[in-house]
């Protein structure tokens, strides 16, 4: 089925209120938001944020995220170490939840955003519907990765007992949190309409 695209008719949907505007207008008639046919420099910005997130994700996994001491003996744990501890303690459900939120979701996000960027840059017409659905899925699941940051903050503020035990955050969790924030920003800066743009439209547009 042939679908008409707003750009071909000189129309732009306002990103704030969704109203259809004439592209020449400059700003939205209803809410005054400046109009842009596509998010500015979407591909470049998304690559930059994605690579920065990938870079931070390395120390986030290598460095410890939490230090716990009880009765004089202390130990640090990494994100994966925490998953393994839950697994050995028999809490398989919790181990799975943390694995999904902290390892599976970020990894899938890196792969999906990377795939969307490469395929959009090549103006590929492959699986447009599925790529758009993948983008919506990434938008929807992305923030669940903040789970570990919240758990560390809760545990560390609670476990403050004299003699019995204390817990403190370690720098790995900062890298982890920043990596999650950057992947969210990367997803937001990608413009899914680029998936549908024909090569001719791209050359005329800002790209």
């Amino acid at each position: 089925m042939k679908v008409a695209r707003a750009r071909d008719f000189g129309l732009i949907g306002c990103r704030t209120c969704g109203l259809a505007n004439v592209a020449a207008a400059g700003s939205c008639r209803r809410c005054g938001t400046p109009l842009a046919a596509r998010k500015p420099a979407s591909i470049g910005r998304t690559w930059a944020l994605l690579l920065a997130a990938l870079l931070l994700y390395i120390p986030a996994n290598v460095l410890p995220v939490m230090y716990t001491s009880s009765l004089g003996t202390g130990s640090s744990s990494t994100i994966l170490g925490g998953v393994v501890d839950f697994w050995h303690a028999g809490s398989w459900g919790i181990a799975l939840v943390i694995f999904v939120a902290s390892v599976a979701v970020p990894t899938v996000k890196f792969l999906v955003i990377g795939t969307l960027l490469v395929s959009s840059q090549r103006c590929s017409s492959w699986a447009r519907l599925q790529r758009t659905q993948l983008y919506r899925a990434i938008e929807f699941i992305g923030y669940w990765s903040m789970l570990d940051v919240i758990v560390v903050a809760l545990v560390c503020s609670l476990v403050q007992f004299q003699f019995i035990g204390t817990a403190e955050p370690r720098v790995g969790i900062v890298f982890f949190g920043l990596a999650v924030v950057l992947t969210m920003l990367a997803a937001m800066s990608f413009d899914p309409r680029l998936i549908w743009d024909a090569p001719a439209a791209r050359r005329m547009g800002e790209g």
Binding site: R5, A6, L11, G13, R15, G18, R128, T132, R193, D197
Partner: peptide, 8 residues
């Protein structure tokens, strides 16, 4: 206008 694919 669809905000995901610019369909009109």
């Amino acid at each position: 206008i669809c905000q995901y694919c610019d369909a009109l």
